[in-house]
Deep mutational scan, measured.
Amino acid sequence: NSLAEAKVLANRELDKYGVSDYYKNLINNAKTVEGVKALIDEILA
C-alpha cells in the first residue's frame, strides 16, 4: 500500500466513527504508512 492509499483508507475509517478534523489532519501529516496505522490504532482505541 502506498502512503496516499493508507491516508484515504484511514480517513474513511475515521468518518465511520465521526472523528473530528483534528485527527484527520494528524493522519494527513503522517510521513509513513506505519505512522498512519499507529495513529488509527491510537485514535480508535
Rank of each mutant, 00 (worst) to 15 (best):
N1H: 12
N1Q: 14
N1P: 13
N1L: 15
N1T: 13
S2C: 04
S2P: 12
S2V: 10
S2Y: 09
S2D: 13
L3I: 04
A4D: 12
A4I: 08
A4T: 10
A4L: 08
A4Q: 12
A4M: 09
A4S: 11
E5I: 14
E5A: 12
E5D: 10
A6D: 02
A6H: 06
A6Q: 06
A6S: 06
A6K: 03
K7C: 03
V8L: 14
V8M: 15
V8I: 14
L9H: 07
L9F: 08
A10F: 03
N11Y: 15
R12N: 09
R12F: 10
R12L: 13
E13T: 14
E13I: 15
L14A: 15
L14F: 04
L14G: 03
D15I: 09
D15Y: 10
D15L: 11
K16Q: 07
K16H: 06
K16P: 03
G18M: 08
G18R: 08
G18Q: 07
V19Q: 06
V19W: 09
V19C: 11
D21C: 13
D21K: 13
D21I: 11
Y23Q: 04
Y23K: 02
Y23W: 14
K24P: 01
K24N: 03
K24L: 05
N25Q: 13
N25D: 12
N25S: 10
N25L: 12
L26E: 04
L26Y: 05
L26V: 04
I27L: 06
N28T: 07
N28W: 15
N29C: 06
N29F: 08
N29M: 12
N29I: 07
N29Y: 04
A30S: 06
A30V: 04
A30N: 02
K31S: 13
T32Y: 02
T32A: 02
T32I: 01
V33S: 03
V33W: 08
E34T: 06
E34N: 05
E34I: 05
E34W: 09
G35N: 11
G35L: 13
G35P: 00
V36C: 01
V36D: 00
V36F: 03
V36I: 11
K37P: 00
A38E: 05
A38F: 12
A38T: 09
A38N: 06
A38Q: 11
L39E: 00
I40R: 09
I40K: 09
I40S: 03
I40P: 00
I40D: 00
D41G: 08
E42V: 12
E42C: 14
E42Q: 12
E42D: 08
I43L: 07
I43Y: 09
I43R: 01
L44S: 04
L44G: 03
L44W: 06
A45C: 09
